[in-house]
């Protein structure tokens, strides 16, 4: 039997053999096969496929990226009218290879649910929102749990606020702008959540907000770093605040502000570490090499290093 386009009764093979065939298929072909019928969908589900991460990006088009351990990642694109049930699927590494899937009764939520079923509710799901969908509540319901949320600055304060209320990420929150500026009362409840990481674009960081942020990794992009706020923050940390903190990173473009470490460390007992002494810090995404810095010791004995790179980055590494 030569390999060709002649019909082949795949669905009449025993389920065991079908699963065997599906295991030899490529990720993109398996996804195409799962759309053929409910039976093929159930059979594809039964082979227990896993992906490492799903990223959903809502911009003009809606893009769903599915990552696999083999790096044979897939991109599903729903054009600006996802209600027509059409999506384009292609490989990340080769946009020419792919297929267009059209099922009028499938809305965006159905397609997402399909993907989540095929890949058995992947643990890491990141949602990036750049515009609102007609029905955000329904969109939220089809994602049972998600680990990361990114909200674009293109949304208004009220829209951002509503999304924060509807979508509560389990691990990571990335906010491109703070809704209602520094109206602390409204924003405090998000800062005190035990998130793994929080990344904010913040024009003027109040000390009390920094002190109540209960995440392990805090990254703030700001046009101006207030050294006095950092000085008081470190003093509070020495006395036991922010006990979960592993890494605080503040970044401001050099043209806007330069960090004066002598002000940051004023009145704080510290030890200067020579630049030739390198330590490796396990960051959120990768390992960071810390050359030198200023060590500070908390009352319970925990050591942290204050480090500044090129005077536009302020890092506070806690060695746990």
């Amino acid at each position: 039997m030569t390999v060709g386009d002649s019909p082949f009764p795949l669905l009449r093979l025993p389920s065991l053999l079908f699963r065997h065939v599906a295991r030899y298929m490529e990720n993109i072909d398996r996804l195409a096969l799962s759309y053929v019928s409910n039976r093929t969908k159930s059979l594809v589900i039964s082979i227990d496929l896993k992906c490492t991460e799903v990223m959903i990006q809502i911009e003009e088009a809606i893009i769903v990226r599915i990552d696999f351990p083999s790096y044979d990642n897939l991109i599903c694109t729903f054009e600006d009218c996802p209600e027509n049930g059409e999506s384009k699927v292609h490989r990340l590494r080769d946009t020419r290879e792919g297929f267009t899937f059209h099922k009028p009764e499938y809305r965006l939520e159905d397609s997402l649910s399909h993907i989540f079923e095929i890949y058995h509710q992947p643990n890491i799901v990141t949602v990036s929102i750049g515009r609102l969908l007609p029905d955000m509540e329904e969109f939220r319901r089809c994602i049972k749990s998600f680990s990361g949320l990114y909200i674009s600055r293109d949304l208004t304060d009220i829209e951002t606020w509503n999304i924060l209320k509807t979508f509560k990420p389990e691990k990571r929150l990335f906010l491109d702008h703070i809704p209602f500026g520094n109206d602390k009362g409204m924003f405090h409840e998000f800062l005190i959540q035990n998130l793994e990481a929080i990344e904010l674009r913040w024009n003027n960081i109040p000390l009390d907000c920094l002190l109540i942020t209960n995440s392990e990794f805090i990254k703030i992009i700001t046009p101006k770093i207030n050294e006095k706020v950092l000085n008081r923050f470190i003093k509070h940390w020495i006395n036991g605040s922010n006990p979960r903190l592993k890494h605080l990173e503040l970044w401001c473009p050099k043209s806007l502000s330069e960090i004066n470490l002598s002000v940051v460390l004023k009145g704080i007992r510290h030890q200067e570490i020579p630049e030739t002494y390198r330590r490796s810090f396990k960051g959120l995404e990768c390992t960071i090499h810390v050359d030198g810095g200023y060590d500070i010791r908390r009352k319970d004995g925990t050591v942290a290093t204050v480090w500044s790179y090129d005077q536009e980055n302020f890092d506070f590494f806690v060695w746990i």
């Binding site: 386009d5 002649s6 019909p7 082949f8 009764p9 795949l10 669905l11 065939v21 298929m25 490529e26 072909d29 195409a32 096969l33 759309y35 053929v36 019928s37 093929t40 290879e97 297929f99 267009t100 899937f101």
Partner: peptide, 14 residues
Amino acid sequence: LRGKNTQEMIKVIT
């Protein structure tokens, strides 16, 4: 089945 879209697969396997 490699490289086939859903419609083509339907033709081949159904």
